[in-house]
Amino acid sequence: MSSITLLVDGYISQSFRSKDAEGYFCHLLKTNSSGLKQSCQALMMPGCSDVLFVVKTVPNAISPRSFMQGPDGGLLWLLDHSVVPTGTVVPQALWSPQNVNDFKQYVSEAPLQLPIFFIHETGALGLSLSDAANGRCHTLREARLQAQLGGKSTTHIRIMWPGYADFRRQVQIKDETAAKNPITVAKFAHHIGRSVEAFLRELTPNSSGSPGDHNWVIGQGGIVPANIRIIGAIHVSAGSWMPILQLNSYVFYGHGSA
């Protein structure tokens, strides 16, 4: 399976468009397009119903616990999952600092962490918005282990849903113990769920949206919270994460329905 599939069939490319996804992976791995194509491979793993996109080496700043064991016993680092065909992936613009110096400091030269995917012990991928927002995350793999979020005390959860103003919410990513340990994977999933709920409460239409944005209208007659699943999140800058969102049905472009 060609490595280019990562930029076509993966959740991140379907969420943020292939070109932006390629740039994101290059900044994450501190490589160029050629290096990304050479290092990425696609494989099937026991207990997974989808294709995993992985690499064998990552920058030293990536947490040493973020690896998985490949079929041959070697270490692999997960970049993405192929999209599970249960509904349309929500397309978002990939957020990044607009100032050139800030982009260099917080993205291109920053130690970004690998994407976090919310995978259940059964191998199922993703949480309903209701489960995430209400903290029903105990069935996730590694739910009680520390999430690798970049070492800061707080971060921003950003959502760039088509047709609506950019949204951000600051959350604590260190616990309240004296040691100030990183929060758990389950707590991070809870933060994401609460952030998506906050976005839905505070919707602000974007008057400069594109004609296709009407397909993504939220509310009566459009997309409702019960339609939304949270697949995971990506570290888009040293201080920001963006959720990967998928509907439990399909948006039919040109008809404006989900």
Rank of each mutant, 00 (worst) to 15 (best):
G239T: 13
S39N: 12
W216C: 07
E121A: 12
W77K: 01
S82Y: 06
E142S: 12
G212Q: 11
R194E: 15
A198L: 12
P71L: 12
G135L: 06
I62A: 09
V84E: 14
D20W: 09
E197D: 14
Q41G: 11
W161G: 04
H81I: 02
L145V: 13
W95R: 11
K37C: 05
S39I: 00
A110M: 10
V171G: 03
T5Q: 15
P97K: 06
G209D: 11
T88S: 15
L112P: 10
V90D: 03
V83H: 02
I223G: 11
V54K: 09
W77T: 00
S15D: 01
F199M: 10
V251W: 00
P211K: 04
F67P: 00
Y253D: 08
F118Q: 09
A21E: 04
S210C: 04
G135H: 08
R168H: 14
Q246K: 04
A21M: 08
F67V: 00
T139H: 08
H156C: 09
V171L: 08
T5F: 03
G254P: 11
A198M: 11
T86I: 14
A133V: 07
P97R: 06
F16T: 01
G239R: 12
N248Y: 01
A147P: 04
D9N: 14
Q38C: 02
T177F: 02
Q92H: 06
D20T: 04
P115I: 11
G209L: 04
P59D: 09
F25L: 13
H255W: 05
P162I: 04
L52N: 06
